[in-house]
Structures are given as structure tokens and as C-alpha cells.
């Protein structure tokens, strides 16, 4: 009886307050979409890092005729200088950091260049001579780049040591900014949602002050009086969280899996599996948000 009673009270409250309930649902929905989008973006960054950090290399570019670095004073790299680089990679102290290395000749570099910049003016204008020979070094731990870079700095015949990770990090930095922006919006929207829930419940308590007054008088317990209001907020927030999860699922299913994965298949994209990890968190945040703002509001505006 008590459960049924509480349920009917909730429905009455939600119906009487339709506009406010809908606004709570929408605001919770938007704020949780931002929270979820931020979380999914971080997971995407994680997935990309795992994928690319395994594949990135340190490139040791050797001197060409036209190199202007001080270490290239003798012009084109000599065979002795090449051997010295190879010997250094195989001997202590570097050998413990290096997993493997590969030599890339001018011809190979040119082929790769042509492939990357096919159909562009840069691709058409480049000649094989302008490109560097290089050693592509895979490190045991990609973060040990500085050890290799410092070792070869000043070595004759080495023009530049380049860490591909640096390039990726710039890309990840941009994604991190997006996460921060999403997080910022989420924060503002969550504050708005909390205040809106508080206002809705206050209004609801005011609308039903006659009922609650009678309940108090006939000796209803605090729980029976406050629970309908609390659950009203929680139910609205849960619907908002449900909508947010659905929207994120659709975005990942049709946006990421349906479009990005086929457009840029080289990347390691997140899937709807990640959405199912994020969704319970969104529901948790929604319930917590509604619960806390309800309890605070009720303790102030609904005397028991």
C-alpha cells in the first residue's frame, strides 16, 4: 500500500509539473551528454595513444648535400658515418633502449613521400635528392626519446633526430582541449541542472503543501512525506541520463563506427562498447545530482 501510494504521489507530482519536469529532463540530458562526450573523447585518446605509440619511431635523419646543420659540414653523409650510427645503436648504452631499427634509403623515402603527398604540388615538386636517408628506430619505451636524441646530437653526419611522438602529442593536445571544453560545459550545465531540480522540487513542495501538511498532521513518517519529491527529481534525472546515453550511443554507432571507421580505417576508433562503460556513470551522476539537490531543498523547504 505504501509503495503504491508513493508511486501515485510521484505520478501526480510529475503530471502537475509537466513543464518543469520536461526542463529538468532536458537540462540533465544536455549536461550528461557533455560529461559523456568528454569521457568518450578521453577513451578515444587513450585508444589512439595505445595504437600509435606502439607504432611511432624515432627518425635519425642523415645529412644530404643541401643540409645546413653544423654536423653536416662535410656534405653528404659518408659510409663511415653511417656505420658509426649503426654501431652506436647496437652498443651500450643505447642497445637497452632500442628495440629495432631500419634503414630508409633516399629511394624509399621518396616513394613514401610520393605516396603521402600524392596529387599535391609538394609531391610533384620534390626530387629524390632533396630527401634524407634515415634510420627508423623503434624504442623499447617510446618515452625514452630524449636519451637517443641527446646521444646523437652533434654526431657528424646526423642532421636531426625527430620523435614522431611529438607530432602525435600535438594532435592529442588538441583533443585534450576539446575534452576540457566539454568538461567545462558539463560543469556549467550540471550546476544549472542542480538549481533547476532544486527549484522544481521547491515548487512541487509548495503546490502540495496542503497534502504534506495533512500528512504531517496524521503522523506520516518523514520518508513517506519526502520520498515522492525525492523520487520525482531522481526519475526526471534518470530519464535525462537515459536520453544522454542513447544520444551518445547513436553518435558512436552512426558517427564513429558508421562513418569515421570507414573513412579513416587506419585509426583505432572507439565503439559502442565504450558507451556501455560510460552510460552507468552517467546514470550514477544523474541520480546523485538529483538526490543531493532534492535532499538539500527538502530539508529547507519541506518541514516534517
Amino acid at each position: 500500500m505504501r509503495f503504491q501510494f508513493v508511486l501515485s504521489e510521484i505520478l501526480t507530482g510529475l503530471r502537475r509539473n509537466t513543464a518543469m519536469t520536461v526542463s529538468v529532463v532536458l537540462v540533465t540530458f544536455v549536461s550528461l551528454v557533455f560529461v559523456g562526450a568528454g569521457a568518450l573523447l578521453q577513451m578515444q585518446i587513450g585508444a589512439l595513444k595505445d595504437y600509435w605509440y606502439d607504432r611511432v619511431e624515432v627518425s635519425i635523419f642523415l645529412c644530404t648535400d643541401s643540409s645546413e646543420a653544423p654536423t653536416c659540414i662535410d656534405g653528404e653523409v659518408s659510409q663511415t658515418q653511417r656505420d658509426a650510427v649503426v654501431a652506436a645503436l647496437q652498443a651500450p648504452p643505447l642497445d637497452t633502449y632500442v628495440q629495432s631499427y631500419e634503414f630508409e634509403s633516399k629511394a624509399e623515402a621518396f616513394a613514401r613521400f610520393q605516396e603521402q603527398f600524392a596529387d599535391t604540388t609538394i609531391g610533384a615538386a620534390a626530387t629524390e635528392d632533396q630527401l634524407n636517408e634515415s634510420y627508423r628506430v623503434k624504442l623499447v619505451d617510446p618515452t625514452d626519446f630524449d636519451v637517443v636524441a641527446q646521444y646523437f646530437t652533434g654526431t657528424p653526419g646526423v642532421e636531426e633526430v625527430l620523435d614522431q611522438r611529438r607530432l602525435l602529442d600535438r594532435f592529442f593536445a588538441v583533443l585534450n582541449v576539446f575534452t576540457l571544453v566539454a568538461g567545462g560545459f558539463a560543469l556549467v550545465m550540471i550546476v544549472a541542472a542542480a538549481l533547476l531540480i532544486a527549484t522544481t522540487i521547491r515548487l512541487s513542495a509548495f503546490n502540495r503543501r496542503r497534502e504534506t501538511g495533512i500528512m504531517r498532521l496524521v503522523g506520516a513518517s518523514k520518508g513517506v512525506i519526502q520520498l515522492p519529491f525525492l523520487l520525482e527529481g531522481v526519475i526526471a534525472a534518470v530519464i535525462g541520463a537515459g536520453l544522454a546515453s542513447g544520444a551518445l550511443w547513436a553518435a558512436v554507432r552512426y558517427g564513429v563506427q558508421g562513418w569515421l571507421t570507414s573513412t579513416l580505417p587506419l585509426f583505432n576508433w572507439i565503439s559502442t562498447r565504450e558507451v556501455f562503460v560510460v552510460a552507468p556513470v552517467l546514470f550514477g551522476i544523474g541520480v546523485l545530482l538529483a538526490g543531493v539537490s532534492s535532499v538539500v531543498t527538502l530539508s529547507r523547504y519541506l518541514k516534517v
Binding site: M1, R2, I214, M215, V218, G219, A220, V224
Partner: peptide, 14 residues
């Protein structure tokens, strides 16, 4: 009946 419902009285009692 409201006075009894809110204090959790069973339906048949009400």
C-alpha cells in the same frame, strides 16, 4: 483513506 494510506495501513483495513 488518505490519513491511513500515508501511515502505511493495509488496503483491507482501509
Amino acid at each position: 483513506a488518505f490519513a491511513l494510506q500515508v501511515i502505511g495501513k493495509p488496503r483491507h483495513h482501509i
